[in-house]
Design a protein around this nucleic acid. Structure first.
Lengths: 123, 123, 123, 123
DNA sequence: GTGGTCTAGACCACG
DNA sequence: GTGGTCTAGACCACG
């Protein structure tokens, strides 16, 4: 499921990139699987086709997917490689916060807190 | 020390906000301390005074600092309140990554990795 | 209708904020409705686009509206939430006047007086 | 008692004006009473003497006090005339909120709410 | 076309 | 001297 939040500062194309990566991380899309056609996805989400096209172009540039003319787009990378991309932002933010004087344990406590929160919702 | 990266997607005013918060987190600026005059800081960093003014206006709106006409801007909040603001982004990103199928231990490992990296640079 | 009083101590951007909130309170703009484009409004009112942009940025920070890049600004909050914001100043002023020795009935009399005055103009 | 809040947007000279008026409203200073010397007050509150002088000049211009060279400043008006000045802001704000679609009963409810709140603190 | 960011610089209130 | 407001106008990302 791909859901777009038009409010908030994250560009829509970036949200699409993250959603596709999320599905690969979760195992919904596996290496070699075909992902939804750009135009169909745009129609489903009520977005400008150019926006979805831009997201797919970025994913292809990053080597996450590859496109075959006339057939569609396919997952190029294994789950772990995608996780690597997904955690880039986390790495940089962590680095900055550690430099701001917050200690590692404090950040780990936040992770546990969020993990526990998630457990509640899931159950 | 406040350093600005003109390249990159983070707006300059946001970098200034983060830098001021960082100094408060580190204890360089304490509650009630005066922070640098907006115009002086702009000159030091080679920026337009408006850009710094915008950062200060945001910090004041967020309750981090308060301005006194004719006297300057002062730290309004305690270190811990500022840390709270600083970790908001971390909380949300963590939440999103956990929802993407990454497990908590993986994220903790990244924190340790970044913490170790930081140790090296410091030594 | 948005009218600006260039004289007087209230900043123009604040008057714009109040006008937009007023229209939401009155029901002219409802949740999800698009508000006028910042540049168009600036042109209509004979103001600099930056002044309107500042007002919209404040309304967005306060959660009253949200902006979607390339599409415009939209009402984010329900009428009642906006009323809450609008009456904040009234609450504080009332508190101060009561502390100054004015009694509640005196203030209510002023409200009736202003309400009656308004009735005359409307008819 | 005069207390100054350096944070917040109300200019210090305006706060002094309001405080003096408040004391007259409460009956602490009566018609003909001498109010504190500007320099002494400035010293007590840790303010620039010019700031207090400005406040006194405004009060004199408004006919609230009158100054006698070499002797000091005195209350010129009766409690009720001062109340009139104090409620000016309230009148204007009420007018604006009524025009925004809020009804008189809603505003009266806020007054009762604030009055009740005050009762609690006093007891 | 829309909003977001930034520079440049003026004028003002406050103290 | 300090911050607050505003104008003027450029450039960019997003869609």
């Amino acid at each position: 499921m791909i859901t777009i939040d038009v409010m908030g500062r994250t560009p829509i194309y970036e949200q699409i990139c993250q959603s596709i990566c999320r599905e690969i991380s979760l195992g919904t899309y596996k290496e070699g699987d075909r992902i939804p056609a750009a135009r169909a996805l745009a129609k489903d989400l009520g977005l400008n086709p150019n926006t979805v096209a831009k997201a797919y172009a970025i994913l292809e540039r990053d080597g996450i997917i590859y496109s075959v003319a006339g057939r569609g787009c396919f997952v190029a990378k294994h789950k772990d490689d995608v996780d690597e991309r997904q955690t880039l932002e986390f790495r940089e933010l962590t680095k900055r916060l550690l430099a701001s004087g917050l200690d590692a344990d404090r950040l780990k406590a936040i992770i546990d807190e969020q993990d526990a929160e998630r457990g509640k919702v899931t159950k």
